[in-house]
Design a binder for these strands. Structure first.
Lengths: 248, 248
DNA sequence: GCCGGGCCTTGACCTAAATCAATCAGGGGC
DNA sequence: GCCCCTGATTGATTTAGGTCAAGGCCCGGC
């Protein structure tokens, strides 16, 4: 594979074997080598905190494997998840040195980090990198707005169905297509984390999961393994436009 | 004023007298003239729709004056506002030709539009424009995440207090600083629009506004004019960190 | 002045989800 | 095997906010 094929941010990352979205260093071995110089890996265990809101954060990173969450907490302890980072997702904001959210590993996690200052320099010098980052940020903004509809207007049942649909759709590595179109995956979140994602309590999450199981919309093996026998039927329950609304 | 001073996206826009954030064409009269060529203005009246979700949208724009909203609607009519555009805010997504949200004027509105294709070309050619756009998008993403906390975890009273604080803080043109630090402004939203912003019903909004009035946190003159005698006291009610949490 | 139509307010009642409180299940350590 | 411990479930009860319904206010047209 030549360096022409190397596109951090969406393809293989230099000499490392994993796919992750980082910055495209397309067709420029100088840029690539600069990226290689400022790149390093960090691993975290389940439950470990990557950064606390308010802490200094002198890197940006993309998720290589595992899952991380962004959460906000109010003084009295109410928590709201505001971001769910799956492999290839990007975290950190060029131009900001203080983390605005708690970043936590909800599974074992490997991140590919770039020291912030040189990364910012790279952006300034490399137009298509800024463009790629813009594109990713716009995608995140769309996801956030979808999420706002969920939080503001959906019922508990719709919220759960939506979350299951999102997870089933989004991370191909979690997804196993079984016989006759059924989907199966391991939930990467505890009931409490699901509740924080959905703006519910963990009890409500648990009850609605049980209800969906009772109604045959999902099957559960243990607490984490979910089987969706009919994905379209589940999608019906999300309250979203049936046409999947592709936007370009 | 020379063209060096002209910075669309955050300063005066070419020959037009209003400040609005468009794209920075700093120090490059060629870029500036290109922008001038693809720029045009559109006016809308209260309640008029700029674009419907799903419609073709072949421009991006920044708000010159007035206020617009982005909303999502479910088939059964439940609505959630997902964006509030005040003067200088940007709308439209390079790389997407179909609108993802309804864009509606909630006051009389003037927008400075740029035809999409040439605008995209401009971005590709002008690094600092892409960077400026990235910065703005990241700000919007932060605002969206703040909003998610509000939708998911705040009480009706906290939601109302937060919205009033946001409006009071955000648009200087609405804000009149009266004697002894009181703030006064006209609400740019109906009770129903506030409800759509906050994930509440209009009745709950009305009741909570009355409650805040009863408690002396706000005064109302007519239905729209709000006076906040003690902004800090109102901020206490938002449930947000008291320290205003500045991040950069 | 009178009427009509948007908005907004207020009241009475209802319900979805929160809260409080037991259990329960499964996996790891010993 | 047995004990813990953490996470999940389930039940009983409460409550914030939604729903339904009845006016009220204000402005603009005639």
């Amino acid at each position: 594979m030549s360096h022409h094929d190397i596109e951090l941010l969406s393809h293989d990352c230099g000499d490392c074997p994993i796919r992750h979205r980082a910055v495209c260093a397309r067709c420029d071995s100088d840029e690539l080598s600069r990226l290689e110089q400022i790149k390093y890996y960090r691993s975290f265990q389940v439950g470990q905190t990557v950064v606390w809101s308010g802490d200094r954060m002198d890197f940006v990173a993309s998720v290589v494997s595992g899952i991380a969450t962004l959460t906000q907490t109010m003084e009295d302890g109410r928590r709201q998840m505001v971001g769910l980072l799956l492999p290839s997702d990007f975290v950190g904001r060029p131009g900001r040195s203080i983390a605005a959210y708690d970043v936590t590993a909800t599974t074992d996690l490997v991140m590919c980090c770039f020291r912030k200052k040189p990364f910012e320099d790279l952006i300034a010098r490399t137009p298509h990198v800024a463009q790629r980052l813009l594109e990713m940020t716009l995608d995140e903004l769309d996801a956030a707005r979808e999420w706002m509809l969920l939080l503001g207007r959906k019922t508990a049942r719709e919220k759960i169905a939506s979350l299951l649909a999102i997870i089933a759709r989004r991370d191909a590595s979690l997804k196993l297509r079984t016989a006759k179109g059924a989907l199966a995956f391991d939930l990467p979140l505890t009931r409490e984390e699901m509740a924080d994602y959905l703006g519910l309590t963990l009890e409500t999450v648990s009850r609605q999961m049980s209800a969906l199981k009772r109604d045959g919309m999902i099957q559960l093996e243990g607490k984490r393994h979910v089987i969706i026998p009919d994905f379209d039927a589940l999608t019906e329950l999300t309250g979203d436009d049936s046409d999947g609304g592709f936007l370009v």
